[in-house]
């Protein structure tokens, strides 16, 4: 993996809609009901900044780009989407330093060149790893459903890949309550 750049990170969610559903409108309605602000293509709530990027012409899939989100906000969005969709494919696109850190966090040894593809298990979920060491790019993806979100695996994967911790741990919550 080439050294140098500090890195960059993006999260892409590809939502497979329920067979026979009425397209993306159902998801939009659910987002509004959950307090998300929809402004043009943007989806906003708290620390979450996301955007609808594309919908397939057949209307069975929608692509959402998550630009920034605290882990809890991300989990919350994913939880809502898996409720409304058949499943959601989650992609983490990482570059430079972020890619190296994520690979290290998952215990993956990347080669110096070529295209590297493999699968690793983390928190009971199979993750697909696509790496392009020449370009310092790494994509980690998995299919999320109700089980992955409810068991907490989705949040653990998110934190492990991005090296973040959810904003309010148990002590935070307790101290917040005491104060």
């Amino acid at each position: 993996m080439s050294e140098g750049s500090l890195g960059s990170r993006e999260i892409r969610l590809v939502c497979r809609l329920q067979p026979g559903s009425q397209g993306i409108d159902v998801v939009l309605e659910a987002l509004r009901a959950a307090g998300y602000t929809l402004d043009g293509n943007s989806i906003l709530r708290g620390s979450l900044r996301a955007e609808f990027r594309a919908t397939s012409l057949s209307g069975d899939e929608a692509m959402i780009l998550v630009k920034s989100a605290e882990p809890d906000e991300f989990r919350s969005l994913l939880g809502l989407l898996v409720r409304e969709c058949w499943y959601v494919d989650v992609y983490y696109h990482l570059r430079g330093g972020d890619a190296r850190a994520a690979a290290g966090g998952l215990g993956i040894q990347l080669p110096e060149d070529g295209v590297y593809r493999s699968r690793v298990r983390f928190s009971g979920v199979e993750l697909r790893v696509d790496a392009y060491p020449r370009h310092g790019a790494l994509t980690i993806s998995y299919r999320a459903g109700w089980r992955e979100v409810n068991s907490g695996a989705a949040l653990k994967i998110h934190e492990r890949i991005l090296g973040m911790e959810s904003g309010r741990g148990i002590f935070d919550k307790l101290l917040g309550w005491i104060r």
């Binding site: 993006e10 892409r12 780009l65 696109h93 392009y132 370009h135 790019a137 994509t139």
Partner: peptide
Amino acid sequence: FGPIALGEVPE
């Protein structure tokens, strides 16, 4: 250039 797997930034 680049595949969809690169996210938002091409080479």
